[in-house]
Design a protein around this nucleic acid. Structure first.
Lengths: 152, 152
DNA sequence: CCGCTGCCGTTGAGACTTCAACTGGTTCGG
DNA sequence: CCGAACCAGTTGAAGTCTCAACGGCAGCGG
């Protein structure tokens, strides 16, 4: 095993800044959302995905893909969202193994109440700190990282 | 209260790509580290911070700041690391309230064993996907986000 | 039609994080 | 010197996430 390639100076600085930015940003957004809407950011993403789906309905596995969550995590999450009355489970008509998750009216209302504050927090803490050029750059960089991780 | 400013198209795409990239990347690195070194990434960062400190020693509150972790989380984490024999707690000589965390030889060995694989994973999943220019850009962007969140 | 393999989703245990409450030490004004 | 306010760190409970194991259904080869 050859000596590993360590990170260059620039890479080192970039990596540490990235770690700090991500940790602080996600912590901040999670805190805000928890305080204002009583849910973690991961649950918010689930509600958003459902709200954009036809009939506000998605198969569990599709929902897991969209919300970037494991099946297990999603199952636990939907159970909790169901207890709140924000989501309902239904049987899948075409595949008896399957399950559908449906966003309820109550869930939609909660989401619509939470959205403005959340968007505002994203803007304040992310986009207001960046130039228009940097926003484009960040988009391209993120897409590259994401695509590198997806295909495998 | 006026209608909130929603995200523009570019912002929307950037935000979603960023979320996906961060989720996938952190999940991947966490999985690797958990498998190879039996610790989450947050604990790895704690060991790194200690390894770079004079006498491999830091006050708990300093360590919390460097590793971007709450006092509570750090306290729990150090307890676990202490059980493994990777870190030790000592009394602070100058402030009787304080506590010091010290990286043990065993902890340093574990860190040095885990580092090459982890660095490699960071390189493969992050830096290999980006051009040299993008690395610089990501550094500047991350620093801006981080600094916006730190000063408050 | 049977059996095999694989997929869908759930479950439970264990680990980690968060939050609020708490102990004990420090600091500073009066 | 005393008390109030504050700071350092810990703790326990509650919530979330991960991982491995599982039950049930689908699809396919023979």
């Amino acid at each position: 095993m050859a000596e590993p390639r360590w990170l260059s100076d620039v890479e080192q600085r970039t990596w540490r800044a990235f770690l700090a930015a991500v940790r602080l940003l996600t912590a901040e957004l999670d805190r805000d959302l928890q305080r204002d809407a009583d849910m973690p950011h991961a649950y918010y993403e689930i509600l958003v995905a459902l709200s954009e789906a036809p009939d506000r309905t998605l198969r569990m596995s599709e929902l897991a893909g969209i919300s970037m969550s494991s099946r297990s995590r999603l199952s636990h999450a939907v159970s909790r969202l169901e207890e709140e009355g924000w989501v309902e489970r239904r049987d899948c008509p075409t595949d008896r193994r399957g399950a559908l998750a449906v966003l309820t009216d109550k869930g939609l209302a909660v989401l619509e109440a939470a959205a403005p504050g959340h968007v505002d927090a994203v803007r304040r803490n992310l986009f207001d700190q960046l130039s228009a050029t940097q926003v484009e750059e960040l988009g391209a960089i993120s897409a590259a990282i994401r695509d590198g991780l997806i295909r495998r």
